[in-house]
Design a protein around this nucleic acid. Sequence first.
DNA 1: AAGAGGCCCTGATAGC
DNA 2: TGCTATCAGGGCCTCT
Length: 287
Amino acid sequence: MPELPEVEIVRQSLDKKIRQKKVKKVIIRNRNLRIKIPINFKKKLENKKVSKVSRFSKYLIINFYEGDFCIIHLGMSGTIHLIRDNFKSSLTNLSFYNSPLLPKKHNHIEIIFDEFRIVYNDPRRFGFFQMIKNNLDLKKRFLHLGPEPFDKKFNLSFFKKFITKKNRKIKDLIIDQKFVSGIGNIYANEILFLSKINPNKKIRLLKEDQCSRIISDSKRVLQKAIKDGGSSIRDFKNTDGNKGGFQDKFKVYGREGLNCKRKGCESIIIKRMISNRSTFFCNTCQK
DNA sequence: AAGAGGCCCTGATAGC
DNA sequence: TGCTATCAGGGCCTCT
């Protein structure tokens, strides 16, 4: 669920809250995430001061003045919650668990600042936290990933390098993070609808203008999602991506059996499995 | 060696 | 009511 736009929205609100703040204390409630939280994790975070929160692809990056970084990936179901601590004594008791904003189960990590804490919740445990010790290691960490859709490197000549003699379906290519990073299943569906390309289309059969179209529509769809989601968040409410405004604007995702939204098209949206993911499209206007 | 498919995990929902 | 099956899909892994 959290794809690049959702992660960017979390980044913006998190950055506003914790920039220039010092981590006072870390509590590990449950170490079991995709990467098990190591014993020394607490030590590596405590007493460090946040310079900013950045992002690459679907990864949040907490930058510290000490020169190291904390990467957070939300996986499928990770959410970050801001809980205000009204009393200093709440550092040692659990009264804040009465907050209606905080789920009762699956809270894994708490990072405590003065007057508030952020709580990482993740029922399915596909997310993870990881400390990175310096800039060089951070670069290495993302070396296997393709450019973001907004990157100048994501252009026609780059695209064409990936399509020679390939028997892959276009849907499979654009959710491949080694090709372009940040696009997940939902936005892949939306991008291909906007581009009028059938998700089953073999990439070797794509015309040049269709490649260009996919490139520009990727940028367009993600940028609009960020704008819509960004305008709907205030303060730091539940950062579940589905709470943003974009889900009402899906043209195809989740719309199996409903009318195609393209003007003049009278077909209905169908659902097929492609690359083991649900794929929604109009078989009439997506060629 | 590219591409298909499986696995990790829990919650929501469907069907009997 | 309570059971089982299926789906959700990001990233990584294995198999052919």
